[in-house]
Amino acid sequence: MRIDAHHPDRSVAHRISVVVLTHNRAQEVMRTLSRLLALPEQPQVIVADNASSDDTVGLIKAILPDVRIVQCPSNLGAAGRNQAVACVSTDYVAFCDDDMWWEAGSLAQAVRVLDASPGAAVLSARVLVGESLELDETCVRMRNSPLESRDLPGPPLTGYIAGACVFRTDVFRAVGGYEPRLFLGGEEELVALDLLASGHAIVYMDSLVVHHHPSRARDSRLRRRLLARNAAWISWLRLPLQDACSATGRAFALLWREGTFARDAFMMMGALPWALARRRVVPPSVRAMRRHVDAAEQRQKKVARRAAN
């Protein structure tokens, strides 16, 4: 099923679009868009601009007029992607962030895989980081997924990488896209849980490649706090009470270490009524899949520690 990356079937241009999420990273997104527009597949490229206050929108309009821009009314975080997908008219939609881009041939490969594999709803790509092309550690775990393939085109997963995946467009819309309240940080976990609960499969595809050159415009401390908060909220939304309490405890511990407990813990717990009103625990089969994956990852960590010693 591999194809020539430089001469793929251009008919896929009408089958797949690419949505790029950005906020105040004009130079990064211009680099990404230039690479996407140079792809031999020639997909439609849609930018979800999260109310950038720099020259992002003006630059794109002036230099890359073929790119469609969806201007969000405010910074919606991951939910900005929902606004862009509302404009997608193709069967499939690929996602990347403003510091990531798809390798030539990968989108055509994704179309072929999804056409041939009706059981797969989402394909999570291999992510190569920086000039050294180092494999993202998340992809290492995905590649080693212990779940049975069930005639799927790659290892089944319980999650995916939001900025390096391809969805069936109708599935993305049916699941509701990203929850605005989560903003950014692990936002794909809630979508993944709902996909699995609906019987859809998420698959890792080593043959699909996304390049990631992490932007320097990052706040790592804020991201850690958002990840912990969102993990707690998602647990209250979809997981058993024991899991929700554990995730909340871990979030409290991190906020205490970060020195933001008084402010952030109050805000986090203030959303509990919202989460409980929308609580829908996923089926036992989905929870069993997650436990199986978690146990395998713990075993791999133990092996790695022994090897290091």
Rank of each mutant, 00 (worst) to 15 (best):
V12D: 05
S17Q: 03
V20W: 01
H23M: 09
M30R: 14
L33N: 01
R35V: 04
A38H: 08
A38C: 10
E41H: 07
Q44I: 03
V45F: 09
V47K: 03
A51G: 03
D54P: 06
A62M: 08
A62G: 11
A62L: 08
P65D: 12
D66K: 13
Q71I: 11
S74C: 07
A78K: 02
A84L: 11
V85M: 08
S89Q: 15
V93R: 00
C96F: 03
C96A: 13
A104H: 09
G105Q: 06
L107R: 05
A108N: 06
Q109F: 03
L114S: 03
A116W: 09
V127P: 01
G130Q: 11
D136E: 12
E137P: 00
T138A: 14
C139R: 06
R141E: 14
P146N: 12
L147H: 04
S149I: 11
G154I: 05
L157D: 02
T158M: 10
I161H: 01
A162Y: 00
A162N: 08
G163D: 07
V166D: 01
F167M: 04
D170M: 12
R173K: 14
V175F: 00
V175T: 14
R181H: 06
G186D: 07
L190R: 04
G199C: 07
G199F: 05
A201T: 02
Y204D: 01
H211L: 15
P214W: 06
R224T: 06
R225Q: 13
L226P: 01
L227C: 09
L227P: 00
A228T: 04
N230W: 00
I234N: 07
I234W: 02
S235C: 12
L239Q: 10
L239T: 00
P240T: 11
A244L: 06
C245V: 11
C245S: 08
E258W: 00
G259N: 07
R263G: 00
D264M: 08
W274R: 01
R287M: 13
M289W: 02
H292L: 10
D294C: 10
A296S: 15
A296V: 06
Q300W: 06
Q300D: 12
V303R: 15
V303H: 09
A304V: 09
R305H: 10
R305A: 15
